[in-house]
Design a protein around this nucleic acid. Structure first.
Lengths: 214, 214
DNA sequence: CGCATAGTTGAGCTATTTCAACATCAGTGG
DNA sequence: CCACTGATGTTGAAATAGCTCAACTATGCG
């Protein structure tokens, strides 16, 4: 429950309000690879990721483009559950996950009761917008090496730290194939910019990486 | 002034409120090709397009990707002026335009005074999110012919209608070159799906076009 | 232990870009 | 009113980034 306090939208709630939310919410457990919502569903529910990892993505013609991966406690599906329209994307668990599901009606009640929550939601949506413009910039304006470089930087915590890196997830986020991502990683390694193990990388030359990520 | 009422955010305002907004706002005129804001500016102002046409876009490495073109009265730059952070993109007039500029402070006051306006803004942001997910879908999952086909459909009003079509704008919205867009148009013409003049097209086979746009 | 999943590497392919040359049009100034 | 100029669009040929396909390796999970 304390994890949930870290979510901007919920941090604002009083103890009582949060309890109320939790009493309304249903806890759902999704094993790895389960669909949480699809574009053919209307936003009748609002989702809070409590534990696990979820990808939100578009698909067409057998291809898939990730919009965002949630791996920390966060809300998702908020736009559609606000408007009540169809979800603009798919959501699927990437690992075993726990999700709190709140009916749209209750979600709207919360908003109505406390305008401060509406403001928080605005802030979240503004963040989402910025994130998506970043995705678009990546997709449209950068070449493969820049994409991978900037992607690594988004994962980067502190110098010398081991960064878990999933090639195929990266590929789906960046609009590349896993082969291309793999090749770019090899290239970065050759250039002495990163070190590479099977599931993780380590940044050796942050400055050069930043340079490439533009 | 009545045009402004058509903008969702403002339609909600009382006569007095709207007058107040207009008294706060500064009317700015931009000739064609003028920059309205850039990513190096913080969202100190909120913009209302009154007349004209404005493109909001990202650029890098001499390339340019349009996020959205506004051609009817609308608000823009709302996310950054809500959070006060840097604009995530550029805005530039595509033709001579009139823009109402409102200081962030006053904009936030409006939100504070009337929660209903906050709700409207949420709706607008939700729309923007859906739009951007659509842009991403286009960029990442579709080939050139599909992109152009679906783009034409977004412009489409009623059957047999002449549709103004600007090849280079289309290209910048679709993440293609003008040459490719031109070639795709020729292809669609060859296929008997559209008719084509210099600055406009006409849909001859809507069903086929929809088929291609997937 | 075995099998499905994830990653690597090479080779050839192809959609789109790039470059170049040309055509057309709209607006401007004489 | 016409000539000039810059912007916009068209078409062809060549270049290329990234994809597809294929074969192989490593891994981790049941």
């Amino acid at each position: 429950m304390e994890d949930l306090r870290k979510i901007p939208l919920l941090s604002e709630l009083s103890e009582d309000q949060l309890k109320k939310v939790l009493s309304i919410a249903t806890l759902k457990k999704y094993p790895k690879g389960k669909v949480i919502f699809t574009p053919s569903q209307k936003g009748e529910f609002f989702f809070i990721l409590k534990k696990g990892k979820v990808k939100v993505f578009k698909t067409a013609k057998g291809k898939e483009q990730i919009l965002k991966v949630f791996s920390k406690p966060a809300i998702f599906g908020e736009a559609a559950s606000f408007t009540g329209s169809y979800f603009p994307a798919w959501a699927e668990s990437l690992e075993e996950s726990e999700v709190l599901v709140i009916p749209r009606k209750e979600f709207l009640n919360l908003l109505r009761e406390d305008p401060e929550i509406g403001m928080k939601l605005l802030a979240v949506m503004a963040q989402r917008l910025m994130h998506l413009t970043g995705v678009i910039e990546n997709l449209s304006l950068k070449d493969a090496l820049s994409k991978v470089s900037s992607y690594i930087l988004t994962l980067y915590g502190e110098m010398g730290e081991e960064i878990t890196f999933r090639t195929n997830i990266a590929a789906m986020e960046l609009g590349l194939t896993k082969e291309t991502v793999s090749r770019m990683l090899s290239k970065l390694k050759e250039m002495g910019i990163i070190e590479k193990n099977r599931n993780s990388i380590k940044i050796k030359d942050l400055k050069a990486l930043k340079e490439l990520s533009i």
